[in-house]
């Protein structure tokens, strides 16, 4: 259940930014979670609602983009989507694949509500 401490990290980072900008509340949080980031999005949503209670982000909607992971073949240099850490190059059948994206876990942007 590392999603709980991660949800707390998100709430802390978001509230810090929102407070600096004088927000009354945060209405939307946009996250980018790569398919290989090791995060269960449903579990994160569940924990988020608990972590955000009583904070500026209490009513925020979590918008999650989940980009596919990409690998690069160490033998022929081709790039292609992968669904797992273990992949075979679709072009030359090599197993020497380097994961180049899909492990990102980023708070992309937030929408804050300001006064009248």
């Amino acid at each position: 259940m590392h999603e709980m401490s991660i949800a707390i990290s998100i709430v802390d980072a978001v509230c810090e930014t929102a407070r600096k900008d004088g927000a009354l509340s945060v209405s939307r949080i946009e996250l980018v979670i790569g398919r290989l980031a090791g995060i269960q999005v449903e579990s994160l949503r569940f924990c988020f609602s608990a972590a955000a209670k009583g904070t500026l982000a209490e009513d925020a909607v979590l918008a999650v983009e989940e980009p596919e992971a990409r690998g690069e073949c160490g033998d022929c240099g081709s790039m292609f989507p992968v669904s797992f850490f273990y992949a075979e190059c679709p072009f030359c059948r090599s197993l020497k694949i380097r994961i180049v994206s899909g492990e990102e876990f980023i708070i992309q942007s937030i929408i804050i509500e300001e006064g009248e």
């Binding site: 991660i6 990290s9 998100i10 980072a13 978001v14 930014t17 929102a18 900008d21 509340s25 209405s27 996250l31 009513d59 876990f105 980023i106 708070i107 992309q108 942007s109 937030i110 929408i111 804050i112 509500e113 300001e114 006064g115 009248e116």
Partner: peptide, 18 residues
């Protein structure tokens, strides 16, 4: 939380969660 003009503002954070 109706997003009336001038009351909502988007902030680019681009920060690693961890």
């Amino acid at each position: 939380h109706d997003h009336q003009a001038g009351r909502s503002r988007k902030i680019e954070v681009e920060q690693d969660v961890l």
